[in-house]
Design a binder for these strands. Structure first.
Ligand code: MN
Ligand code: MN
Ligand code: MN
Ligand code: MN
Lengths: 218, 218
DNA sequence: TATAAGGATTTGCCAAGGCTAACTTTCCAA
DNA sequence: TTGGAAAGTTAGCCTTGGCAAATCCTTATA
């Protein structure tokens, strides 16, 4: 239906949203010039996928949001499928899904969802929108501002930086990992955590990308 | 590396080749105007993917042929993968692979080939080129001009027409099926065949699309 | 051998998506 | 209150890959 470019813009707008996403922000996210982003925003507004207030920003319309969620669903189902069938690691799947998501028919999407048992999270722990854009599992909290000395379960890790992902993997941090924050460094916000019996230090920049919950969900 | 359009042109040139593929033939195959095909041929010649003799036709260069074979490999591996994992039928997989083939990285291609045990045929029985363009299994013969009263094994069925494929499927004709030609109709070339104990009639147009061998290969 | 049909190319158009350079708007800090 | 930096837009250009219409070449047939 829509082009690869349009789909990627919608996905970025969704990720950066919900409201008044700036042209520069969008351009940077897609590694494109500001001029290109402006022009595309005008085209998206033409198609009623975004509302655009000049010099203020762009916001997805309901139509645009549903379209974005459909791409996100395909992306995350593909990541899950590649991980499940081929055994690809969490750090390998994002870039592949980024391309395949635009070539996945509704039929194949359904077949994959069925095959996987309609999962609600991908291998990074990210929630997978339902076939009509429903989103659950939005209650996970950033590790960086979680309470000390409580038993926490890692729920989400970032998906788009293989080096961060490899570091996390090598340190046994992934969805399902249980840990406890021992102390929080003053000034730099780094965390000292205990995973099982082992103590680790997690920098604040990484801690802000990891999401946890207090109880394991079913 | 190359765009979706370039890859599809190369694949068509390979299918219609090897030599002096006509502009109209190519245009019809890709459902594009003659003018578009001419222009693309010029661009492909520029990139040294084809040799072009004006008013005579276009032929893939070695470079172009390898590129085409790489896409064909991806296409057929994807068909096999979708059939294997998701259980999609022979009539469902072609159109999906047609789009996914352009979004498949070398890495993913290798992972899939590995997962499938490096198959040499796809679910339609079409040979899968090796990672360097090697092609085997080219000795299968069209059913339409096979000898009468010999035990034949179906090796290949067409892949791009779901209705033909469904008819074949419903009549138990697919790679592996054993059959014998009882008689050949005069004039229209239709075949009367026996599959197990059952007699069927196969029109000449379909018989020309099915390939067989005399002995089952390993 | 002449001619017409069909194949091939050329010309001129279009939209999508990129870019740089120049200009405009916004808004913060002095 | 205002000057300038940063954000946003506009203008002008480019490539890719489409199209229709006009024209050119080849070839089979009369
Ligand atoms: Mn993408
Ligand atoms: Mn993910
Ligand atoms: Mn294709
Ligand atoms: Mn096939």
């Amino acid at each position: 239906m829509y082009s690869v470019a349009v789909e990627d813009y919608l996905k970025s707008l969704w990720k950066l949203g919900p409201n008044n996403v700036g042209t520069k922000q969008l351009a940077d996210n897609l590694r494109v010039s500001k001029a290109s982003a402006t022009k595309m925003i005008l085209r998206l507004a033409e198609k009623e996928l975004v509302d655009h207030i000049p010099y203020k920003g762009a916001s997805l319309t309901k139509k645009g949001e549903l379209e974005a969620l459909s791409i996100v669903r395909k992306h995350r189902l593909l990541e899950t499928f590649l991980s499940q069938t081929l055994g690809l690691g969490r750090e390998e799947i994002h870039d592949e899904a980024e391309k395949l998501e635009h070539a996945l028919s509704k039929n194949l999407e359904m077949a994959i969802a069925e095959y996987l048992g309609n999962p609600t999270r991908d291998p990074h722990g990210h929630p997978i929108p339902g076939p009509n854009g429903e989103l659950y599992n939005e209650s996970d909290l950033p590790l960086c501002d979680s309470p000390i000395n409580m038993s926490l379960t890692v729920m989400q890790v970032p998906d788009d930086d293989p080096s961060i992902l490899s570091w996390l993997e090598n340190n046994g941090i992934h969805p399902g990992t249980e840990l406890k924050i021992i102390s929080r460094d003053k000034f730099d916000g780094g965390l000292n955590v205990k995973i099982g019996a082992i103590k680790k230090r997690i920098s604040s920049s990484i801690a802000s990308l990891v999401k946890i919950s207090f109880e394991v969900e079913n």
